[in-house]
């Protein structure tokens, strides 16, 4: 498994392994928060910040944290950053804080963050982990933005709160409802897979080359073998 460049890692999170449409991680926010584009951006950027910071810290501590306590340690670190974001947002971005409500604290259990901590940050150096966090976070934000644009324009005839036809007209309410959320998410996931799906790995390769999880973990098995020799 050849080493990926920083740019490749970043681009991976953004497109090839977009957490919402390809990895299908952290789906609560895309379904719940995407009724308005401004909420979606706020949520996406908050998550990105937490993801980047936690990836960096966990990567820096990766040789220090013992295997036995890695999950409690990861979660504590992630929760710490989420609380910091929450406190700062409450002070300086009060209306966004109100709109996000309980979903802000739920970033702690967003699978993307714990997932990337486990699969990438704990096995790679700090700079690549930063790139991965940034890529995944921005990919997540982009996904939220796309979904919320569709839902808000079709469901509310507005975008970022700006109403196209005035306050009294409402759009197709279906898209504001949870059913519409699942529908839009499903259609977009299908579309993204049609456009960006890679060919499946050939099965007869040994080691990281034949493993479908290789790109996600950064080829750690091959590396461990090489280090052990």
């Amino acid at each position: 498994m050849e080493k990926k460049s920083i740019w490749q890692i970043f681009r991976n999170g953004l497109i090839d392994e977009n957490p919402t449409f390809r990895l299908l991680l952290g789906m609560c926010a895309p379904l719940a928060i995407t009724t308005s584009a401004s909420n979606a951006i706020g949520m996406g950027l908050a998550t990105t910040f937490v993801l980047v910071c936690s990836n960096a810290v966990i990567s820096a501590l990766r040789r220090v944290i013992p295997k036995e306590v890695r999950l409690p340690a990861f979660i504590t670190i992630i929760a710490g950053f989420v609380t910091i974001v929450s406190l700062v947002m409450q002070r300086y971005f009060a209306s966004l804080y109100d709109s996000l409500g309980v979903f802000l604290e739920l970033i702690v259990v967003n699978c993307i963050i714990l997932g990337r901590a486990e699969m990438f940050a704990s096995k790679n150096k700090v700079i690549p982990s930063l790139a991965d966090g940034l890529g995944m976070g921005l990919g997540f934000t982009a996904a939220l933005l796309i979904i919320s644009t569709i839902r808000e324009i079709l469901g509310n005839l507005s975008w970022f709160g700006f109403s196209f036809f005035g306050d009294d007209v409402s759009g197709m309410l279906f898209f504001i409802l949870p059913a519409g959320a699942f529908f839009v998410l499903g259609m977009l996931t299908a579309l993204m897979n049609v456009i960006f799906a890679k060919k499946p790995a050939k099965k007869n390769d040994a080691g990281c080359a034949g493993c479908p999880g290789a790109s996600a973990c950064g080829g750690s098995c091959d590396r461990k073998e090489a280090e052990a020799k």
Binding site: M172, L173, F174, F175, L177, A179
Partner: peptide, 8 residues
């Protein structure tokens, strides 16, 4: 049903 939910 979709119409009923959307354009009640």
């Amino acid at each position: 049903i979709v119409i009923m939910l959307s354009f009640a």
